[in-house]
Simulated assay, not measured.
Amino acid sequence: MQLTQTKQCANCPWKVDRDLSQIPGYNRENHQALNETIANPHLDLLEQLTSHNVAMGCHYSTDEKLLECLGWIYHQLRHNNLILRLVLMRSGQIKQLEIDGAQRATFAETLKD
């Protein structure tokens, strides 16, 4: 897996200082459905391997090009998404990630204004 971007965008919902109304094409229903992308840190490695979490796409993604959400990646790395950590370590891109400012601690916080 190679990331298509390594710098968090200015309007990322994981940023503490962002405003949901400023996110281009924001859709609250779609945002809420992304809860399924959050890995359960209480699962052991085997359980994580067999779970079916998918990556959260950046709101700048298009039908033609999926961009990974760097806020989501940062959150998942901090909260024991072992599969993601292994994939990014193997790609060598883990050291290139650039997070911009304070981040929200939970997915539920990304839904608050």
Rank of each mutant, 00 (worst) to 15 (best):
45 L>N: 14
30 N>E: 11
54 V>F: 12
43 L>R: 05
37 T>Q: 13
37 T>D: 09
41 P>S: 07
25 G>E: 09
38 I>K: 02
70 L>P: 06
63 D>Q: 11
49 L>H: 12
58 C>L: 11
69 C>N: 08
51 S>C: 14
75 H>A: 03
46 L>A: 11
52 H>I: 04
41 P>L: 08
41 P>V: 05
41 P>W: 14
75 H>G: 02
27 N>T: 01
25 G>T: 02
60 Y>W: 10
72 W>M: 07
26 Y>Q: 02
36 E>G: 09
76 Q>C: 07
47 E>N: 09
36 E>S: 14
78 R>P: 00
46 L>C: 03
69 C>Q: 05
39 A>V: 15
52 H>N: 11
70 L>G: 02
72 W>I: 00
51 S>Y: 06
37 T>I: 03
52 H>Y: 06
35 N>R: 12
74 Y>I: 01
27 N>E: 10
40 N>L: 04
25 G>S: 12
51 S>T: 15
52 H>W: 02
54 V>N: 09
35 N>Y: 07
26 Y>V: 00
43 L>D: 13
53 N>M: 08
55 A>L: 10
66 L>A: 10
51 S>F: 03
34 L>N: 07
32 Q>Y: 09
62 T>D: 01
55 A>S: 13
39 A>H: 09
71 G>S: 02
76 Q>E: 12
41 P>Q: 01
24 P>T: 00
39 A>C: 12
67 L>S: 03
61 S>Q: 08
67 L>N: 08
51 S>L: 04
65 K>A: 10
68 E>V: 10
56 M>V: 02
46 L>R: 11
72 W>S: 07
53 N>F: 10
58 C>K: 13
76 Q>D: 02
54 V>A: 03
59 H>L: 12
75 H>S: 03
30 N>Q: 15
66 L>R: 15
42 H>L: 06
61 S>F: 09
55 A>K: 01
71 G>E: 06
38 I>D: 10
31 H>T: 11
23 I>T: 10
75 H>I: 04
34 L>G: 02
46 L>G: 06
66 L>V: 15
69 C>I: 04
45 L>Q: 02
55 A>H: 13
73 I>S: 10
26 Y>T: 00
